[in-house]
Computed example of a mutant assay.
Amino acid sequence: MMLKAHVVALAALTFCSASALAAGETLRVGADLTYPPFQYRDVNGKPTGFEIDITNAICKAMEVKCDYVVSSFDAEIPSLMAKKVDFISPLGATSKRKKSIDFSHFVYHVPSQLVVHKGSTLQPTPESLQGKNIAVQQGSIQEMYANKYWAPKGVNVKAYPDQDGIYQDLAADRLDGALSPSVAVTFGFLQKPEGKDFELTGPEVRDDVLFSIGSAYGVRKGDEKTQQLLNEGLAKIMADGTWQKIKQHYFGDITMKVARTETTDAAK
């Protein structure tokens, strides 16, 4: 009986270890602040956006301080592996990325779609886009998809270090289109004056090998402490309604929750 009680107590201690060990610590978060409304700087230069607010809520729930380390999106995984940051903002938990890093539970899902000039007949197929200049963000799942399926068929895939550069060249007519996360385009670029002549077209672009069913925080391989802390914090803000409140603020009634929380076998 005493042995059983000891085992139960040990299990409870293990479950709470992430919270207890992390309380009061400062964690460095890799972020790319050129991706509104997910990550950007407000008028005072402070990090803000959907992902930033979610991350801040998790850090508050777990009683840790989170400092943002800004870099380009394609530099985030190398920074994580080099221990320059403790975890990185949500990104697609693809099978390729899982070879290098581990992930938290899913935070949200956003479809990928093609954005083009209003009235354009272009569709997200290699036949339709042959000879056209199509932008993607460096290091993104959209870049992987376009390089695998479109570039070999004659599509001019142009990689940019950030979404701002893509939006600027779309508005300047230097691009025929861009493959981007649809929610970011809808609630970012399309709501700005420079995006008024553009629209999303065609169905969601998907691939069961390259894509994940959702985005999750990236952590270093074997860093179970940070992974558990993020998972516990995410579970807390989903249970108490904070996640939904933040999502509603930025995206209204759009459904962004992933049906299951785990990232295991998310991208086979």
Rank of each mutant, 00 (worst) to 15 (best):
K84Q: 15
V85I: 13
V85K: 11
V85F: 06
F87G: 00
I88D: 10
L91M: 06
A93S: 15
A93L: 09
A93G: 15
T94F: 09
S95Q: 10
S95F: 01
K96P: 02
K96C: 03
R97P: 04
K98T: 06
K98L: 10
K99A: 13
S100R: 13
I101G: 10
D102K: 04
F103D: 03
F103C: 01
S104K: 02
S104H: 02
H105T: 12
H105C: 10
H105Y: 11
V107G: 08
Y108Q: 11
Y108S: 07
Y108I: 13
H109L: 06
H109Q: 10
H109T: 13
V110Y: 00
P111I: 09
Q113C: 08
Q113N: 09
Q113R: 14
L114I: 14
L114A: 10
L114D: 03
L114N: 03
V115G: 08
V116M: 03
K118Q: 15
K118S: 13
S120D: 13
T121H: 14
T121P: 03
L122T: 05
Q123V: 14
P124W: 12
T125C: 08
P126W: 07
P126H: 12
P126S: 11
E127W: 04
S128F: 06
S128K: 07
L129P: 08
L129A: 14
L129F: 13
Q130V: 08
G131R: 02
G131Y: 07
G131N: 07
K132I: 07
N133P: 00
N133S: 08
I134W: 00
I134F: 02
I134Q: 00
A135W: 00
A135F: 02
Q137Y: 00
Q138F: 04
G139S: 04
I141C: 07
I141L: 12
Q142M: 07
E143V: 05
E143H: 09
A146H: 07
N147D: 10
N147S: 05
N147Y: 07
Y149G: 00
W150L: 15
A151N: 00
K153T: 10
V155I: 06
V155M: 04
N156S: 06
N156H: 15
N156M: 01
N156F: 01
V157T: 12
